[in-house]
Write a protein that binds this DNA or RNA. Structure first.
Length: 588
DNA sequence: GCCGTTTTCGGCCCGACTGTTTTCAGTCG
């Protein structure tokens, strides 16, 4: 699929044009890039079917950008883009990924110091060449170094959300081979960790050579690091590495256990095996050199005195002890963590009312296809002008529109893809918590909604005490039911904002506030650790996608995975409740 | 460069924050 490649180029063109201070064009390219990024149909297919005219039907794509797409599909290049790069040969994407560095800064740094990439920039900043340039002083130099350090900490790691679709695709391809008897992903992907170093896939096959030949010649591979009968290693276009291992059928369970990890979990399980006079490795569980388990994963756990546990729990964060208690029939065994099928609706998504991509009706249709009972439309409110936030009057208008669509959907004659399910759109909003902790929408308007979410979208760098107070004040508003993305972190980009999270948790408990587990691949906020703490305190949570596009509703699995990693059970998550119970609880 | 119940030109991308200023430029959401 060429869509993402094209999107990347158009994002870069937008940055280059911004450098040149060209008005409005960057915005147009950005819009086209976003549009392509979220487009479900392949641009190459669209072009094949309908030519330039069909490309121009893509939102944000007009004559000029359609021609550039055509040029790229035909030649693999876009001349306009290459000219821009020639004029300013900088790694624009890499440099602007540094927090606080944008196109103008990149341009100034290139003009004065010929800085082309992060390496150049870090060197220059370290020897204090940045300070003293017009508009740059000590503080900016420090911020740049901090930004680079942050980026490096997460370098080489990829977001679960960007890797998972690729892994599913590759597993699907391998499964088509008749030589593959068994196959599974292992490692941190199987544990659904928020970021991933590389991907491990295990298979059982009688003809490993054939499987390996197929593996290293799959489309989208840019490098083959190693190819052998038991292990091959490749790098794919997206930049991450995949290891494929062929293991013996009788060792499949123990290999899966071993390669799933985590390392800490494995150390603990091996220690447990030793205590029982056993040896556990990737080939099996052995008693005096005699193999007693290894064929299947549950058998491996049973052999060392445990019970099988979901990969999301395997971090040696108490799961081994819990499993032992369970085996001994004691209280506090393994949690019955929430399942991937337990969610009944999504309570945080955006429509085209606040500049999102799809209409309320389209979002609702997509939610119905996911077998949901309800979908909460929670558009941004007026403080966020760039997102075209709604004011009190627009919220009232939107209410009428939602009632109209609900009446239409609930009409028995409505042609629906899923005729059995009842479905209702709820109206909420994602209001802004202003600097003083007040909400940017009047109580009288909040009151008329089914529920309201509040979130922080500005002033992330407040002092800790003030930020804590700010959030707690918002929680005291009787109409606010949910706090969205409670810690504000952006993976690979920005740390959490400073706040006393324990205090926030206590306040959430006191005021009956539900904390969100935001499923956006870059957020996953709350994270697994915080989910666990919230659960321990008996605080309710909600898993939401924060979708700005129908396709984003699919992020739900990422949020559920983090909830599972945080030991959350079905009862801890409010959107596992059927609609009537949910609404009753909101009224309380 | 895109778009159209303002329809082939003229809008679109606003406001807060930060770090640099002494009235502003760049970045971010």
């Amino acid at each position: 699929m060429k869509n993402q490649e094209l999107a990347k180029i158009f994002y870069e063109i937008a940055d280059f044009l911004e450098m040149e201070e060209i008005a409005f064009k960057p915005y147009a390219y950005q819009k086209a890039a976003i549009s392509l990024d979220t487009l479900e149909e392949d641009a190459a297919e669209i072009y094949k079917k309908g030519g330039l005219k069909a490309l121009e039907k893509i939102p944000g794509v007009g004559k000029s950008i359609a021609e550039k797409i055509e040029e790229y599909l035909k030649t693999g290049k876009i001349k306009h883009y290459q000219d821009l790069k020639k004029k300013m040969p900088v790694q624009i994407e890499e440099l602007t990924a540094i927090e606080g560095v944008g196109p103008k800064t990149v341009k100034a740094l290139y003009k004065s110091l010929k800085i082309k990439n992060i390496e150049d920039l870090e060197k220059a900043a370290r020897v204090h060449k940045i300070r003293g340039l017009p508009g740059f002083q000590e503080k900016t130099e420090k911020n740049i170094l901090q930004g680079i350090a942050f980026l490096k900490r997460s370098k080489g790691r990829f977001l679960l959300g960007e890797i998972l679709p690729q892994v599913k695709e590759i597993l699907g391809q391998l499964k088509t081979l008749k030589e593959v008897e068994q196959i599974s992903v292992a490692g941190s992907v199987r544990r659904m960790k928020e970021t991933i170093g590389d991907v491990d896939i295990l298979i059982v096959s009688k003809k490993p050579d054939k499987v390996m030949d197929f593996f290293v010649s799959m489309p989208g591979i840019i490098k083959v690091w190693a190819k052998g009968p038991t292990r091959s290693s490749i790098r794919v276009e997206q930049g991450f590495d995949i290891d494929l291992r062929v293991v013996a059928k009788k060792s499949y369970g123990s290999a899966l256990q071993y390669f799933t990890g985590s390392k800490e979990h494995n150390i603990a399980t091996r220690r447990l095996a030793i205590e029982k006079g056993l040896k556990l490795n990737e080939y099996g569980v052995f008693k005096n050199k005699k193999m007693i388990a290894g064929w299947r994963e549950p058998g491996v756990y049973r052999a060392i005195g445990l019970v099988w546990m979901p990969p999301e729990l395997r971090e040696n964060q108490g799961e081994i002890e819990a499993a032992l208690r369970q085996v001994q029939g004691k209280l506090n065994g393994l949690p019955k963590i929430i399942g991937y099928q337990d969610i009944k609706g999504d309570l945080h998504c955006h429509s085209d009312w606040d500049g999102g991509n799809n209409s309320i009706e389209k979002m609702a249709e997509a939610a119905q296809q996911m077998d949901y009972e309800y979908l909460g439309i929670t558009d941004h409110t007026k403080f966020l002008r760039i997102e075209q936030g709604l004011d009190e009057r627009q919220l009232a208008q939107q209410r009428k529109e939602i009632e109209k669509i609900n009446a239409k959907i609930q009409n028995p004659n409505y042609s629906k893809s899923n005729p059995k399910s009842k479905f209702q759109i709820l109206q909420g909003c994602e209001a802004n918590i202003l600097n003083d902790g007040s909400i940017d929408i009047k109580d009288e308007a909040l009151k008329k909604l089914d529920y309201a979410i509040a979130g922080i979208h500005s002033s992330f760098k407040m002092p800790k005490a003030k930020m804590t107070e700010r959030i707690i004040k918002a929680m005291k508003n009787p109409y606010i039911k949910i706090i969205s993305h409670p810690t504000g972190r952006i993976l690979k980009k920005r740390d959490e904002y400073q706040c006393d999270f324990e205090k926030i948790l206590r306040a959430a408990k006191t005021f009956g506030i539900v904390l969100e587990i935001n499923s956006q691949p870059r957020r996953l906020d709350l994270n697994d650790q915080n989910i666990r703490r919230a659960k321990e305190m008996g605080i309710k949570m909600v898993i939401n996608t924060d979708a700005h596009h129908t396709s984003h509703l699919r992020f739900m699995d990422l949020g559920i995975a983090q909830a599972r990693r945080g030991w959350a059970e079905k009862k801890d998550i409010i959107n596992t409740q059927p609609l009537d119970r949910l609404l009753k609880n909101f009224k309380k």
